[in-house]
Simulated scan of single mutants.
Amino acid sequence: MNKTSLLILLVASLFFGCEAKNKKQYANNVSTVESILEENASALLKDKRFHSLSVGIYKDGKTITKHFGELEIGKGNLPNDTTIYEIASVTKTFLGTLTAKAVLEQKINLNDDIRSYLEQPYPNLEFNGKAITIQDVLTHTSGFPNFPIKGDTKQNFFEGLKEIKIEDEIGTVYAYSNTAPEVMAFILEKVYGKPYEMLVKEYIVAPNEMKRTKFDLSEFEKKSLVQGYNGENELMPNFERNLWGGTVGLHSTMADMLKYIAYHLEDANEIIKESHKDFLETPYDFNIGYYWNIIKTKDEVVYRHHGGIFGMQNWLMIYPKQNMGISIFTNCSFDETGELLEEVATNICAEVAKIDLSDK
Protein backbone atom coordinates (compact mmCIF):
# COMPACT_ATOMS: atom_id res chain seq x y z
CA MET A 1 0.00 0.00 0.00
CA ASN A 2 1.48 3.35 -1.05
CA LYS A 3 1.68 6.50 1.06
CA THR A 4 -1.33 8.10 -0.64
CA SER A 5 -3.54 5.12 0.12
CA LEU A 6 -2.38 5.07 3.72
CA LEU A 7 -3.14 8.77 4.08
CA ILE A 8 -6.65 8.32 2.66
CA LEU A 9 -7.27 5.38 4.98
CA LEU A 10 -6.08 7.40 7.98
CA VAL A 11 -8.27 10.40 7.15
CA ALA A 12 -11.29 8.14 6.59
CA SER A 13 -10.79 6.34 9.89
CA LEU A 14 -10.48 9.64 11.72
CA PHE A 15 -13.63 10.99 10.04
CA PHE A 16 -15.79 7.97 10.75
CA GLY A 17 -14.37 7.70 14.24
CA CYS A 18 -15.36 11.30 15.00
CA GLU A 19 -18.77 10.76 13.44
CA ALA A 20 -19.41 7.71 15.61
CA LYS A 21 -18.25 9.61 18.68
CA ASN A 22 -20.58 12.53 17.85
CA LYS A 23 -23.54 10.20 17.34
CA LYS A 24 -22.87 8.55 20.68
CA GLN A 25 -22.59 11.92 22.42
CA TYR A 26 -25.82 13.10 20.79
CA ALA A 27 -27.64 9.94 21.92
CA ASN A 28 -26.33 10.49 25.44
CA ASN A 29 -27.52 14.09 25.39
CA VAL A 30 -30.99 13.07 24.20
CA SER A 31 -31.13 10.52 27.01
CA THR A 32 -30.16 13.23 29.50
CA VAL A 33 -32.96 15.50 28.27
CA GLU A 34 -35.48 12.67 28.50
CA SER A 35 -34.37 12.01 32.08
CA ILE A 36 -34.89 15.69 32.92
CA LEU A 37 -38.41 15.53 31.51
CA GLU A 38 -39.19 12.33 33.41
CA GLU A 39 -37.91 13.66 36.73
CA ASN A 40 -39.92 16.88 36.48
CA ALA A 41 -43.07 15.13 35.26
CA SER A 42 -42.90 12.53 38.04
CA ALA A 43 -42.61 15.26 40.66
CA LEU A 44 -45.62 17.17 39.26
CA LEU A 45 -47.83 14.09 38.92
CA LYS A 46 -47.45 13.37 42.63
CA ASP A 47 -50.09 16.08 42.94
CA LYS A 48 -53.18 13.96 42.27
CA ARG A 49 -55.06 16.87 40.76
CA PHE A 50 -52.82 16.35 37.71
CA HIS A 51 -53.60 13.33 35.53
CA SER A 52 -51.35 13.73 32.50
CA LEU A 53 -48.48 15.80 31.20
CA SER A 54 -47.16 16.27 27.70
CA VAL A 55 -43.81 18.02 27.24
CA GLY A 56 -42.15 18.99 23.98
CA ILE A 57 -38.67 20.47 23.61
CA TYR A 58 -37.28 22.12 20.50
CA LYS A 59 -33.55 22.80 20.71
CA ASP A 60 -30.76 23.21 18.15
CA GLY A 61 -33.11 22.09 15.38
CA LYS A 62 -34.10 18.86 17.16
CA THR A 63 -37.32 17.88 18.90
CA ILE A 64 -37.90 15.65 21.91
CA THR A 65 -41.34 14.80 23.29
CA LYS A 66 -42.43 12.80 26.31
CA HIS A 67 -45.90 11.98 27.60
CA PHE A 68 -46.98 10.89 31.07
CA GLY A 69 -50.08 9.84 32.99
CA GLU A 70 -53.52 9.23 31.57
CA LEU A 71 -56.06 11.29 29.64
CA GLU A 72 -59.06 9.64 31.32
CA ILE A 73 -58.99 8.75 34.99
CA GLY A 74 -58.56 5.02 35.46
CA LYS A 75 -58.10 4.17 31.78
CA GLY A 76 -54.33 4.48 31.52
CA ASN A 77 -54.56 6.07 28.07
CA LEU A 78 -51.33 7.99 27.55
CA PRO A 79 -51.35 11.19 25.47
CA ASN A 80 -49.11 11.27 22.38
CA ASP A 81 -47.74 13.67 19.77
CA THR A 82 -51.06 13.72 17.90
CA THR A 83 -53.37 14.20 20.89
CA ILE A 84 -55.40 17.35 20.24
CA TYR A 85 -55.52 20.05 22.90
CA GLU A 86 -57.22 23.41 23.16
CA ILE A 87 -54.34 25.89 23.33
CA ALA A 88 -56.61 28.55 24.88
CA SER A 89 -54.95 31.98 25.20
CA VAL A 90 -51.79 30.87 23.41
CA THR A 91 -54.11 31.51 20.45
CA LYS A 92 -53.36 35.21 21.03
CA THR A 93 -49.76 34.73 19.86
CA PHE A 94 -51.07 33.65 16.45
CA LEU A 95 -53.09 36.88 16.37
CA GLY A 96 -50.01 38.88 17.33
CA THR A 97 -47.96 37.25 14.57
CA LEU A 98 -50.61 38.05 11.96
CA THR A 99 -50.87 41.62 13.25
CA ALA A 100 -47.10 42.02 12.86
CA LYS A 101 -47.45 40.84 9.27
CA ALA A 102 -50.21 43.38 8.62
CA VAL A 103 -48.07 46.19 10.08
CA LEU A 104 -45.11 45.28 7.86
CA GLU A 105 -47.38 45.17 4.83
CA GLN A 106 -48.75 48.61 5.81
CA LYS A 107 -52.31 47.35 5.91
CA ILE A 108 -52.58 48.85 9.39
CA ASN A 109 -50.56 51.18 11.59
CA LEU A 110 -49.90 50.68 15.29
CA ASN A 111 -51.16 54.20 15.99
CA ASP A 112 -54.44 53.79 14.10
CA ASP A 113 -57.67 54.53 15.98
CA ILE A 114 -59.42 51.14 16.05
CA ARG A 115 -62.75 52.87 15.35
CA SER A 116 -61.59 53.64 11.83
CA TYR A 117 -62.02 49.91 11.10
CA LEU A 118 -65.31 49.40 12.93
CA GLU A 119 -68.65 49.75 11.19
CA GLN A 120 -70.33 51.90 13.85
CA PRO A 121 -69.06 55.13 15.48
CA TYR A 122 -68.49 54.09 19.16
CA PRO A 123 -67.88 57.53 20.71
CA ASN A 124 -67.47 55.74 24.06
CA LEU A 125 -64.21 54.08 22.99
CA GLU A 126 -61.93 56.90 24.09
CA PHE A 127 -60.74 58.56 27.29
CA ASN A 128 -60.38 62.33 27.67
CA GLY A 129 -60.35 62.64 23.90
CA LYS A 130 -57.66 59.97 23.40
CA ALA A 131 -58.62 57.12 21.09
CA ILE A 132 -57.77 53.44 21.51
CA THR A 133 -55.05 52.44 19.05
CA ILE A 134 -54.06 49.07 17.66
CA GLN A 135 -50.99 49.08 19.92
CA ASP A 136 -53.24 49.59 22.94
CA VAL A 137 -55.26 46.54 21.91
CA LEU A 138 -52.07 44.46 21.55
CA THR A 139 -50.69 45.44 24.96
CA HIS A 140 -53.87 45.05 27.05
CA THR A 141 -53.97 48.80 27.74
CA SER A 142 -57.16 49.60 25.81
CA GLY A 143 -59.40 49.77 28.87
CA PHE A 144 -61.61 47.01 27.49
CA PRO A 145 -63.14 44.59 30.01
CA ASN A 146 -61.64 41.14 30.45
CA PHE A 147 -64.62 39.34 28.94
CA PRO A 148 -66.98 40.63 26.23
CA ILE A 149 -70.15 42.21 27.58
CA LYS A 150 -71.98 40.24 24.92
CA GLY A 151 -70.09 37.31 23.47
CA ASP A 152 -72.73 34.89 22.27
CA THR A 153 -72.65 36.10 18.63
CA LYS A 154 -70.51 38.41 16.53
CA GLN A 155 -73.45 40.79 16.05
CA ASN A 156 -74.10 41.02 19.76
CA PHE A 157 -70.37 41.47 20.40
CA PHE A 158 -70.50 44.80 18.56
CA GLU A 159 -73.58 45.81 20.51
CA GLY A 160 -71.68 45.03 23.70
CA LEU A 161 -68.86 47.38 22.63
CA LYS A 162 -71.35 50.26 22.90
CA GLU A 163 -71.74 49.57 26.62
CA ILE A 164 -68.03 49.75 27.45
CA LYS A 165 -66.95 52.66 29.64
CA ILE A 166 -63.24 53.45 29.50
CA GLU A 167 -62.21 54.44 33.03
CA ASP A 168 -58.42 54.75 32.86
CA GLU A 169 -55.95 56.59 30.70
CA ILE A 170 -55.53 54.55 27.52
CA GLY A 171 -52.12 53.06 26.79
CA THR A 172 -50.83 53.21 30.35
CA VAL A 173 -52.76 50.79 32.57
CA TYR A 174 -52.19 47.09 31.91
CA ALA A 175 -55.42 45.10 32.37
CA TYR A 176 -55.66 41.70 30.68
CA SER A 177 -58.52 41.59 28.20
CA ASN A 178 -60.18 38.79 26.29
CA THR A 179 -62.38 41.37 24.56
CA ALA A 180 -59.72 43.41 22.76
CA PRO A 181 -58.17 40.51 20.78
CA GLU A 182 -61.53 39.78 19.18
CA VAL A 183 -61.61 43.36 17.92
CA MET A 184 -58.09 42.89 16.55
CA ALA A 185 -59.08 39.68 14.76
CA PHE A 186 -62.04 41.49 13.18
CA ILE A 187 -59.74 44.30 12.01
CA LEU A 188 -57.39 41.81 10.33
CA GLU A 189 -60.35 40.11 8.72
CA LYS A 190 -61.46 43.45 7.32
CA VAL A 191 -58.11 44.66 5.97
CA TYR A 192 -57.30 41.32 4.33
CA GLY A 193 -60.83 40.69 3.08
CA LYS A 194 -60.74 37.09 4.32
CA PRO A 195 -62.20 35.23 7.32
CA TYR A 196 -59.82 35.29 10.29
CA GLU A 197 -59.68 31.49 10.37
CA MET A 198 -58.42 31.53 6.79
CA LEU A 199 -55.69 34.06 7.65
CA VAL A 200 -54.38 31.79 10.41
CA LYS A 201 -54.39 28.81 8.08
CA GLU A 202 -52.92 30.58 5.04
CA TYR A 203 -50.15 32.55 6.72
CA ILE A 204 -49.11 30.41 9.71
CA VAL A 205 -50.55 26.91 9.74
CA ALA A 206 -50.09 25.85 6.10
CA PRO A 207 -46.57 27.26 5.53
CA ASN A 208 -45.35 25.50 8.68
CA GLU A 209 -47.17 22.24 7.90
CA MET A 210 -49.14 22.39 11.15
CA LYS A 211 -51.77 20.06 9.74
CA ARG A 212 -53.70 19.48 12.97
CA THR A 213 -53.82 23.11 14.12
CA LYS A 214 -57.26 24.54 13.42
CA PHE A 215 -60.32 26.17 14.91
CA ASP A 216 -62.93 23.68 13.76
CA LEU A 217 -62.38 19.94 14.07
CA SER A 218 -63.90 17.15 12.03
CA GLU A 219 -65.89 14.45 13.80
CA PHE A 220 -62.89 12.15 13.38
CA GLU A 221 -60.49 14.72 14.87
CA LYS A 222 -62.80 15.25 17.85
CA LYS A 223 -62.04 11.67 18.89
CA SER A 224 -58.47 12.82 19.61
CA LEU A 225 -59.55 15.99 21.45
CA VAL A 226 -58.76 16.07 25.15
CA GLN A 227 -61.63 16.60 27.58
CA GLY A 228 -60.02 17.51 30.85
CA TYR A 229 -60.84 17.87 34.54
CA ASN A 230 -61.16 20.53 37.19
CA GLY A 231 -59.48 20.37 40.60
CA GLU A 232 -62.21 18.09 41.95
CA ASN A 233 -61.64 15.54 39.14
CA GLU A 234 -64.90 16.51 37.48
CA LEU A 235 -64.96 16.21 33.70
CA MET A 236 -65.18 19.64 32.05
CA PRO A 237 -66.75 20.64 28.71
CA ASN A 238 -64.73 21.73 25.71
CA PHE A 239 -64.88 25.37 24.65
CA GLU A 240 -67.33 26.38 21.93
CA ARG A 241 -66.23 29.40 19.89
CA ASN A 242 -68.80 32.03 18.95
CA LEU A 243 -66.50 34.89 17.94
CA TRP A 244 -63.51 35.28 15.58
CA GLY A 245 -60.93 33.36 17.59
CA GLY A 246 -58.47 36.12 18.38
CA THR A 247 -58.63 35.30 22.08
CA VAL A 248 -59.07 31.53 22.29
CA GLY A 249 -60.32 28.72 20.10
CA LEU A 250 -57.38 27.13 18.33
CA HIS A 251 -56.70 23.41 18.71
CA SER A 252 -53.27 21.90 18.20
CA THR A 253 -50.99 18.97 18.96
CA MET A 254 -47.57 18.70 20.53
CA ALA A 255 -46.03 17.95 17.13
CA ASP A 256 -47.55 21.11 15.65
CA MET A 257 -46.62 23.33 18.59
CA LEU A 258 -42.97 22.35 18.17
CA LYS A 259 -43.23 23.46 14.53
CA TYR A 260 -44.67 26.74 15.78
CA ILE A 261 -41.71 27.16 18.12
CA ALA A 262 -39.31 26.51 15.23
CA TYR A 263 -41.14 29.18 13.22
CA HIS A 264 -40.72 31.72 16.02
CA LEU A 265 -37.00 30.94 16.17
CA GLU A 266 -36.44 32.02 12.55
CA ASP A 267 -34.24 34.99 13.39
CA ALA A 268 -34.04 36.16 9.76
CA ASN A 269 -37.82 36.23 9.35
CA GLU A 270 -38.99 39.87 9.31
CA ILE A 271 -42.49 38.98 10.54
CA ILE A 272 -41.05 37.12 13.51
CA LYS A 273 -38.68 39.99 14.30
CA GLU A 274 -41.59 42.43 14.22
CA SER A 275 -43.83 40.14 16.30
CA HIS A 276 -41.17 39.99 19.04
CA LYS A 277 -40.98 43.75 19.54
CA ASP A 278 -41.40 45.09 23.05
CA PHE A 279 -43.96 47.89 23.49
CA LEU A 280 -44.75 48.20 27.18
CA GLU A 281 -43.36 47.52 30.64
CA THR A 282 -46.10 46.04 32.83
CA PRO A 283 -46.31 46.13 36.65
CA TYR A 284 -45.38 42.45 36.65
CA ASP A 285 -42.18 40.59 35.77
CA PHE A 286 -42.71 40.89 32.02
CA ASN A 287 -43.05 43.39 29.23
CA ILE A 288 -45.53 42.99 26.38
CA GLY A 289 -45.55 43.49 22.63
CA TYR A 290 -47.65 41.66 20.05
CA TYR A 291 -49.39 39.73 22.85
CA TRP A 292 -46.17 37.93 23.83
CA ASN A 293 -45.16 38.24 27.49
CA ILE A 294 -41.50 39.20 27.27
CA ILE A 295 -39.11 38.47 30.13
CA LYS A 296 -35.75 40.23 29.95
CA THR A 297 -32.67 39.47 32.00
CA LYS A 298 -29.05 40.47 31.52
CA ASP A 299 -28.44 37.13 29.79
CA GLU A 300 -31.50 36.47 27.65
CA VAL A 301 -34.95 37.43 26.40
CA VAL A 302 -37.81 34.93 26.71
CA TYR A 303 -41.15 35.05 24.87
CA ARG A 304 -43.94 33.29 26.71
CA HIS A 305 -47.69 32.83 26.93
CA HIS A 306 -49.99 30.80 29.13
CA GLY A 307 -53.23 29.22 28.00
CA GLY A 308 -56.00 28.03 30.30
CA ILE A 309 -59.49 26.75 29.54
CA PHE A 310 -62.12 24.69 31.36
CA GLY A 311 -60.27 21.36 31.51
CA MET A 312 -56.71 21.94 30.36
CA GLN A 313 -53.81 24.37 30.55
CA ASN A 314 -50.52 24.91 28.76
CA TRP A 315 -47.43 27.09 28.56
CA LEU A 316 -45.42 28.06 25.49
CA MET A 317 -41.93 29.48 26.08
CA ILE A 318 -39.35 30.50 23.48
CA TYR A 319 -35.65 31.17 24.20
CA PRO A 320 -34.07 32.60 21.01
CA LYS A 321 -30.54 32.90 22.44
CA GLN A 322 -30.60 29.20 23.34
CA ASN A 323 -32.32 28.24 20.06
CA MET A 324 -34.84 26.51 22.29
CA GLY A 325 -38.50 26.38 23.18
CA ILE A 326 -40.90 24.33 25.26
CA SER A 327 -44.57 23.44 24.96
CA ILE A 328 -46.19 21.79 27.96
CA PHE A 329 -49.81 20.60 28.35
CA THR A 330 -51.89 19.07 31.11
CA ASN A 331 -55.49 17.86 31.12
CA CYS A 332 -56.61 19.66 34.25
CA SER A 333 -57.48 23.21 35.21
CA PHE A 334 -57.70 24.68 38.71
CA ASP A 335 -56.47 27.86 40.36
CA GLU A 336 -52.82 26.87 40.79
CA THR A 337 -52.41 24.89 37.56
CA GLY A 338 -50.74 27.65 35.57
CA GLU A 339 -48.28 28.52 38.32
CA LEU A 340 -47.30 24.89 38.91
CA LEU A 341 -46.97 24.20 35.20
CA GLU A 342 -44.89 27.35 34.75
CA GLU A 343 -42.48 26.24 37.47
CA VAL A 344 -41.99 22.84 35.84
CA ALA A 345 -41.49 24.32 32.36
CA THR A 346 -39.00 26.89 33.65
CA ASN A 347 -37.03 24.26 35.57
CA ILE A 348 -36.87 22.01 32.52
CA CYS A 349 -35.63 24.82 30.30
CA ALA A 350 -32.96 25.86 32.79
CA GLU A 351 -31.53 22.33 32.70
CA VAL A 352 -31.97 21.62 28.99
CA ALA A 353 -30.37 24.94 28.02
CA LYS A 354 -26.99 23.53 29.10
CA ILE A 355 -27.23 20.53 26.74
CA ASP A 356 -26.07 20.51 23.12
CA LEU A 357 -28.54 18.78 20.80
CA SER A 358 -26.95 19.89 17.54
CA ASP A 359 -25.46 16.36 16.89
CA LYS A 360 -22.28 17.98 15.56
Rank of each mutant, 00 (worst) to 15 (best):
Asn293Ser: 08
Ile170Leu: 02
Tyr290Val: 01
Gly228Lys: 11
Leu250Phe: 07
Glu189Ser: 12
Lys277His: 15
Asn233Lys: 15
Ile170Ala: 01
Leu258Tyr: 00
Met254Tyr: 04
Asp216Ser: 03
Trp244Asp: 03
Gly289Pro: 08
Ser177Arg: 07
Asp216Thr: 07
Leu258Gln: 09
Tyr229Asp: 13
His264Ser: 04
Ala255Ile: 00
Ile204Leu: 15
Lys273Phe: 00
Tyr176Asn: 01
Tyr263Pro: 03
Asp285Asn: 15
Met254Gly: 05
Met198Ser: 13
Lys201Pro: 02
Lys201Glu: 14
Ser224Lys: 12
Glu234Lys: 14
Asn233Glu: 03
Leu188Thr: 06
Ile271Pro: 06
Glu197Tyr: 10
Lys190Asn: 12
Met236Cys: 11
Arg212Gly: 02
Gly171Val: 07
Thr253Met: 08
Met236Ile: 08
Thr282Tyr: 04
Glu221Pro: 03
Glu270Thr: 14
Tyr196Thr: 01
Leu225Met: 04
Ile261Ala: 12
Ala180Glu: 01
Phe279Ala: 05
Leu250Lys: 07
Phe286Arg: 06
Asn293Trp: 05
His251Phe: 12
Tyr229Glu: 11
Pro181Cys: 14
Leu235Pro: 13
Glu209Lys: 15
Gly193Ser: 12
Tyr263Asn: 09
Met254Phe: 01
Ser252Thr: 13
Phe239Asp: 09
Leu199His: 08
Phe279Gly: 02
Leu217Val: 07
Lys214Pro: 08
Tyr174Leu: 06
Ile187Gly: 09
Glu209Tyr: 12
Val226Trp: 09
Gln227Ser: 10
Leu199Ala: 04
Val248Lys: 13
Asn242Val: 06
Pro283His: 05
Trp244Ala: 05
Val191Leu: 14
Leu280Ser: 03
Glu234Leu: 14
Phe239Met: 14
Glu270Gln: 09
Leu217Asn: 11
Glu197Thr: 13
Gly245Leu: 15
Leu243Asn: 12
Ser218Cys: 04
Glu274Asp: 11
Glu240Pro: 07
Leu243His: 13
Phe220Cys: 01
Trp292Tyr: 10
Gly289Phe: 04
Phe239Asn: 08
Glu281Val: 15
Glu197Lys: 12
Gln227Ala: 06
Glu202Tyr: 00
Lys259Tyr: 05
Lys273His: 03
Gly231Cys: 09
Val200Thr: 07
Leu217Trp: 08
Pro181Met: 08
Tyr290Pro: 01
Val191Pro: 14
Val173Ile: 15
Ala206Trp: 08
